[in-house]
C-alpha cells in the first residue's frame, strides 16, 4: 500500500487514554491507542466485547458520559484540529457535519415520537442555513441515495413503521446528510439479518467510494472486516495488539489472540472437527493487570516474561504491526524495566 505521510491523515489518534471513574478510582478502558485513518480508507476495529472498541469511538466523538468517563491522555487530531481540547460548542459544529456516527441498534438511535422527515431535517437545519422546501428536497434525495423506495411517503412515517434494514438506511442517510469526511460505524449490521446485512454493506461501500469518505468500522465479525475494510486494528483489553492491512492480517495473523480469534469462527468453506477456543474471558476494568501483556493469562503461548514486560506495538513487516514478546527478538533494556 502507498506510504502516506502523517500530515495527510484525516484522523490521527496518538496514545489515547480514556478513563472511567469506578468507586472513586480511575481506570483506563482505552489505554495508549495510536492509529491513523487516511482519507478514503476504511479501517476495521475488531475484538471481543469489553475490549474498548466502542469507548474509543465515543472518545473520538467526544461523547463519553460526562462525570464518569473522560479522555485522560493522548491526542485526537482530526483535520488539523485537536478534538480533545475543543469546547463543546465547537465540537457540536464538527459532530454530525464532519464526523458522524451510525450505531448498532437502529431502533434505539432514532427518536420514536418524531417522523423520519423531521429527524433528517433537524440534522440539516443544525448545520446549514436552508429553507424548509430545500431541506425536504435534499432529504428525498438522501433517502433515494440510500436505496429507500417511495421516499415521499417514508418522510411522513415514524421509526416503528419501518423494518430494521430500512431504519439502518435512514440512520445512514442521516449520517451522510452533511457529507462528513469521517464516518464511525459501530457494529452497523450486527442487529440485521444476513441478506439485509449484505445490502447495507454494499450501500456503505458505494457511498464511501462516491463521497471519498473515510470509515472507522467497528465490528466483531471478521468476515465483515475481510470484505469491507482496507486496514484492520485488533484490540484486546483496551490496547491494540495487532494492526495490518486486511490482506496481511488474514493471510498471516501474528498475535496469538488474532490467530485464536480466527480459528474460533466456524467457516463455510472448510470443515473442522473442533473449533479453537480461548479459555477465560476479557479481564474486567478493575482487574486489568498494570504490567505485562493483558492477554497473557489466556494465551496458550505465554512465557514467563509476558507478565513482567509490557509488549509495545512494533512493525514486524511493512504495514503489519504486532504487540507481542514472541516477535521481539532483541528487547531494549528500558522496556524490560518497565
Amino acid at each position: 500500500m502507498r506510504e502516506v505521510s502523517n500530515s495527510q491523515a484525516i484522523l490521527e489518534v496518538k496514545n489515547l487514554e480514556s478513563a472511567f471513574m469506578i468507586e472513586g478510582e480511575e481506570y483506563n478502558a482505552v489505554d495508549g491507542v495510536s492509529f491513523q485513518v487516511q482519507p478514503g480508507k476504511v479501517v476495521g476495529v475488531v475484538g471481543e466485547s469489553g475490549c474498548g472498541k466502542s469507548v474509543m469511538s465515543l472518545s473520538i466523538m467526544g461523547l463519553l458520559p460526562k462525570g464518569i468517563g473522560k479522555v485522560a491522555g493522548g491526542e485526537i487530531i482530526f483535520d488539523g484540529k485537536h478534538l480533545e481540547q475543543l469546547p463543546d460548542q465547537k465540537m457540536n459544529k464538527i459532530r454530525g457535519k464532519e464526523i458522524s456516527m451510525i450505531f448498532q441498534e437502529p431502533m434505539t438511535s432514532l427518536n420514536p415520537v418524531f417522523t423520519i422527515g423531521y429527524q433528517l431535517e433537524e440534522v440539516l437545519h443544525n448545520h446549514f442555513k436552508i429553507s424548509k422546501e430545500e431541506a425536504t428536497k435534499k432529504i428525498i434525495q438522501l433517502l433515494d441515495a440510500v436505496g429507500i423506495s417511495r421516499p415521499n411517503k417514508i418522510i411522513k412515517d415514524y421509526p416503528h413503521q419501518l423494518s430494521g434494514g430500512m431504519r439502518q438506511r435512514v440512520m445512514i442517510a442521516m449520517a451522510i446528510a452533511c457529507q462528513p469526511k469521517l464516518l464511525i460505524a459501530d457494529e452497523p449490521t450486527t442487529a440485521l439479518d444476513v441478506t439485509v446485512q449484505a445490502q447495507i454493506l454494499e450501500l456503505l461501500q458505494d457511498i464511501q467510494r462516491k463521497n471519498d469518505m473515510s470509515i472507522i468500522f467497528i465490528t466483531h465479525d471478521l468476515g465483515v472486516v475481510a470484505e469491507s475494510c482496507h486496514e484492520v486494528i485488533v484490540m484486546y483489553a483496551g490496547r491494540i495488539v495487532e494492526k495490518a492491512s486486511v490482506e496481511r492480517l488474514f493471510k498471516g495473523p501474528k498475535h496469538p489472540y488474532t490467530k485464536l480469534l480466527m480459528g474460533a469462527i466456524p467457516r463455510l468453506d472448510e470443515t473442522v472437527d473442533e473449533l479453537e477456543t480461548i479459555e477465560g474471558i476479557v479481564p474486567t476494568l478493575t482487574k486489568m493487570p498494570s504490567v505485562g501483556c493483558r492477554f497473557a493469562n489466556r494465551c496458550p503461548q505465554a512465557m514467563k516474561e509476558c507478565v513482567e514486560v509490557t509488549p509495545q506495538l512494533k512493525e514486524e513487516e511493512s504495514n503489519h504491526e504486532v504487540a507481542c514478546l514472541l516477535y521481539e527478538a532483541s528487547r531494549p533494556e528500558e522496556e524490560v524495566s518497565r
Partner: peptide
C-alpha cells in the same frame, strides 16, 4: 443466503 455470508477467506 450463502452468498450473503461475509467470508474471511475471500480477502481482496
Amino acid at each position: 443466503l450463502i452468498s450473503a455470508v461475509p467470508d474471511a477467506s475471500k480477502v481482496g
